[in-house]
Write a protein that binds this DNA or RNA. Sequence first.
DNA 1: TCCATTGACGTTTTT
DNA 2: CGTCAATGGA
Length: 728
Amino acid sequence: MDVSHLLDELNDAQREAVTADDNHVLVLAGAGSGKTRVLIHRLAWLIQVGHVSPLSILAVTFTNKAAGEMRERAQDLLQVSTRPLWIGTFHSIAHRMLRMHWREAELDENFQIIDSDDQHRLLRRLIREEGLDENQFPARQAQWFINARKDEGQRPPAIEHMDHPLTAAWVHLYERYQSHCERTGLVDFAELLLRAHELWLKQPDLLGHYRRRLTHLLVDEFQDTNTIQYAWIRMLAGDTGQVFVVGDDDQSIYGWRGARVENVEFFVRDFPRVQTVRLEQNYRSTGNILAAANALIANNEGRMGKNLWTAGEEGQPIQVYAAFNEQEEARFVVERIERWMSEGRRAEQAAIVYRTTAQSRLFEEYLLKASIPYRVYGGLRFFERAEIRDALAYLRMLHNPNDDAAFERIINTPSRGIGQKTVSLLRLQARETGLPLWQAAIECVKQDTLNGRAKNAVSAFLELISAMRERMSDWTLGNQVEGVIEQSELVRHYEKEPREKMEARVENLRELTNAAESFVLTAEDEEAGLSPMQSFLSHAALEAGETQGEAWDDCVQLMTLHSAKGLEFPLVFMVGLEDGLFPHQRSVQESGGRLEEERRLCYVGMTRARELLYLSYAEVRRMFGSESHSRPSRFLDEIPAQLIEEIRPRMGTRSPWVSARPAVASRGGGLGEPGQPFRLGQTVRHRKFGEGTVVTFEGSGEHARVQVNFFDAGPKWLVLAYANLESD
DNA sequence: TCCATTGACGTTTTT
DNA sequence: CGTCAATGGA
């Protein structure tokens, strides 16, 4: 068979990876080096040259988008149906396993997936029920604790908490939470992975079956795998599976949510005869951009080592702009976008990337003023909208009445006279009897534990749900969704909101009906034995939809650095490059490689740019209501000066604080010379806190206080007379 | 039950 | 400065 189409367009390294035989393969793929292409060509190579059955291949990604893209591109290349191929996210594959083997996994046949919002509410409720102080035990932290433990593959008994009363309390909560989920048939995201792993641990026969069937594993974005995902891959591979992983340790930016870059090294250690291939030729950025990115990332220790190069042009130098404040920064960026567009380029080719979501607002404001269309990534997705979640909660109740998360959500939505008091009575009953809320409510009505009005309201609710279930049992999915929306009278509930909002909600509900009507059960889900309803609900949980309706208009793209990963733009503005903001203060303070992760984030950001990269920072930024002065990001210092072109602020504009009334150091030996004034924004040194910039001051003489924003320790108020600050 | 006021807090996000 | 959630009065 002629396979030249699989190899012709590849460079030597790519070809080596695609054609590797018999071994496990680690592809260290730099940014823009064609990693997806390699993955897909490998897939095609296995089938067309290695004669591996498509049924034996499992390809895993992190996002649904990546999975969809992979399937699509494989389809294009192979020119045959990719349906038999198993391509999906870790979560969707684990989910499918659990659906097929729910009995062996000791799950409820109709288990529901809860998203992190459901999980949060549930934990808040449990914390209250446990009588714990919500300030001392915030639900957010509980969520973090439990998910992190699950990501590490740990169940409560395995967690050490000797003489750690606090940890012991969290473990106890984990236990309570888990048994509650078991009772009510709820499974969270982390549980999907852990449970799928445990399924194989407990069922060697099942594991054996999958090992025989899935002989070839491909993993994308390997640097983002967490402990349990890695263990899962290892287990499935066994001694016979062939594993092909693609990743870039320099682009690992999700350590804070459990990803373990070390897995890249572990892979070489744990699997025999790993063939490592480096993809270093970059097809995206100019030479200057790559040189700058390489220089920056070289400051990280313990890298696997890679140096990107390009056969293309050097391009323009990196443009660095020092703005006086954040307004001026936004003004500058928008001005440059206008210039770009006036040269005949398109708005959609430009991206503004920032460290924190809050930074988007100003840019939106200035873009709006300049009438430049833009699109902000992130934000609420379709299935995360309140009205959609409400409607889905009704559906879930029809499907699995024990679903407490759904019960809580709709028990009084729309309001039907069931207040906090009644709900807590139901919860109490549920807790005492160990029953799900639904059954507890039935008991309460039967036993007359409720007063007249509450009883009527609750039994009306029970009646409503039961009636809906009965009536709709044989309706089509689309009709059920429509029926639920109608009979729940959800629209009545939203009518109290402002017109515009209400109309949007109603429109979304209509869209939900449309989605249900046109929903087709995938072959995979059918194979896994799912009903259309189960499949639909699972999809809603596992694929919350695009971050924003695919507006393929000609828009400037605004996004965080994290969501920029994997994308590329001819023109990129990385903004807010100030120490404290980027790298973020908390990353600087926390140890454990957080600063290196920030640097990788910077690397990711820079390597998004194809032609022109702007880096900007503000000398003064209003944050949390007060002005803060910070020094330019330390990452700027790590870029060789000869690659940079500094754009000086326009003449005549002086930062306001320079002319501010100078304060006077109150005694000698302190700041600078005795009696010498110091300025806001000046860099000072403190014996304990290190270096920082003077942010503000107040008082005079012995009582003079100064606020210093320390680079490592953050902002601190100091009494000048005692602080013993030094300046350069 | 609903709205308005008060208070705490303030990375990054996918599944 | 803004946001979000919790509280309290009508």
